[in-house]
Structure formats: C-alpha cells, structure tokens
Amino acid sequence: MRPANRLLLWLLLAPAVLWLGLLIVLPHLEILMLSLRQRVAPHEYAFSLQQYATFFDEPLYWHTFARTALISLLATLLTLLLAFPVAWHIAKVARGRSKALMLALLLLPFWASEMVRTLGWVILLRGSGVIPQWLFHLGLTAEPVELLYNDASILLGLVYSSLLFMLIPLVNALETLDDSLVEAAYDLGGSRVNILRQIILSHAAPGIAAGSVMVFMLTLGNYLTPVLLGGKNSMWFTEQIYTQFITRFNWEQGAAFALLLLVLSTLMVWVGLKLTGQGFGETLRRT
C-alpha cells in the first residue's frame, strides 16, 4: 500500500472508530461497570452483584420485565398477522397507480411522528374521546367507557406503530416470489393451505424474520406509546430504567436494568435469526 493511501485509510477510519468507540462501546462498558458495583459509603463503591439480586428479589421488577417481553412478543405476532394479507395484496395483486397509492398511504403515518400517532389514539380512546362517545350515542354502551389505560390500548398502539416495519420487508420478500410457482402448485392440485405453507411462507421466511426481529426490538425499547396509552398501568421496562436513572438517581440499578433489557433484546434477535437461518447483516440491510 502506498503511504498516501495508508494515510487516507487512517483518515477514513478515524471518524468510524471515534463514533463506535466513544458513543457505543465505551458507554456500554460504563453501563456494565456501573451495574456491577454497589455504594458502600458516600463516594465509595465496591464490586457486587446486588443490583441483579434486587431485580430477581423484587417481584415488581421482574414482573415488569416479563410483561414487557410478553406484550412485545404478542405485538410482533399480531403485527405479522395483520400485515401479511396487506403485504400480499400490495406485492401480488395491486398494480400501477393503486399500488403506488397504497405504499404512500402506508408511509403516511410513519412520516408523522410517534407523538402525533399517540395523540390520535388518545383522542380516539379516552372516556370523553371519539369512540366511547360514538358507542354511547349509538346506544351500545350505557355510558361512555374508558378505552384507554389498559393492556389492549397499549397493544393497539404498539401494533399500529410497528406495521410499517413489518410491511416493507414482507412486501420486498413477496415481490421476488415467482407467480408461476403458485400457479404450478395450483394446477397440480395443491390445496390453498399447502400452497401457503410450502411455497409462500417458505419463500417469505427471510422477510418475516427481518420484520419480526425489527418490530420486536422496537417494541421492547419503546417508551412513549406504552406510557401514554397505558397510563399508570403501563408497567413498561424502559420506564423502570428511566425512573431509576433520572428520577431516583440510582444509576447502578438503572444500569443493571438497561443491561438486562439489552441482553433480552439481543437474545431474541439472535434466536429469531437462528430459527430462520438468516445472517445479521443481511437482515438489517433488508429493512
């Protein structure tokens, strides 16, 4: 390598190393170190696993953790079920203008910020909001019912926010499926269920994996939607992290929580990719 090229390489390498080093690697090491210590006296710390012990001893904490994971999983599944028929329609049935229009309509809510979407759901679901008032006026309920601040409203908001991240990879995957495969299977007498399972789903597997992994991760790390749509009942784990760090100023505990969430998130991504035999880089580039 010529010296000039070598210099150029180092110059190009510098920003990347600074970025990954100072903003990703070292901060996470800091979190790891914080989570493994305990205050023994003012300004004096000792190594300890106390923060993690507290997590397992205190039911509130691990309940919230498990609940967050479970709801995220459920939200991912629901998103997939809701999105699949639409993705199929866009990829295989719609043509030309109507296809472009549908894609634009899909993108619309996601160009509006999460705050705007959540505000919309609050206006729709609150006891004095649009849907409860309608139900009341139509005589379906004796009085306006509060539809906000429960698990269903959290789930609804999360699914709504996730749809795009599921749809785009699904549409991309389905578009590459050759129609004649489906036709051949049909001509040879394959049942609809078999065609769906053996041809369509197996072909779309990479897209399903990419979408699901993305949605699960985003849902798990979401803060705004569960807190605003769940109110006091939200019990979302990121909220616990915020409370420990910012409200209680208990950085050691907060760091342990953050690390646990990170481990869960990474684990699920890994499992999701292993199950479908996908590579990490491939999957992310797809979305």
């Binding site: 901060p27 991760m217 790390g221 992290i241 953050a258 969430l261 880089g281």
Partner: peptide, 27 residues
C-alpha cells in the same frame, strides 16, 4: 467485522443508547 459493528447501533434500544452515553459522558 467493522461493517457489522456499524449496524450494531440499530439493534440497541434507544433508551439504552441514551443512558449509556449519559453515564459515560458524566464520567
């Protein structure tokens, strides 16, 4: 390895990115 590492920030929850940077910069 570097090209994979560059994708890493996309799989870290935003809240964790925030507090880890907060903690490190405070140090």
């Amino acid at each position: 390895l570097l090209s994979l590492a560059m994708l890493l920030p996309l799989v870290i929850p935003g809240v964790i990115l925030g507090i880890s940077i907060l903690a490190f910069m405070s140090r």
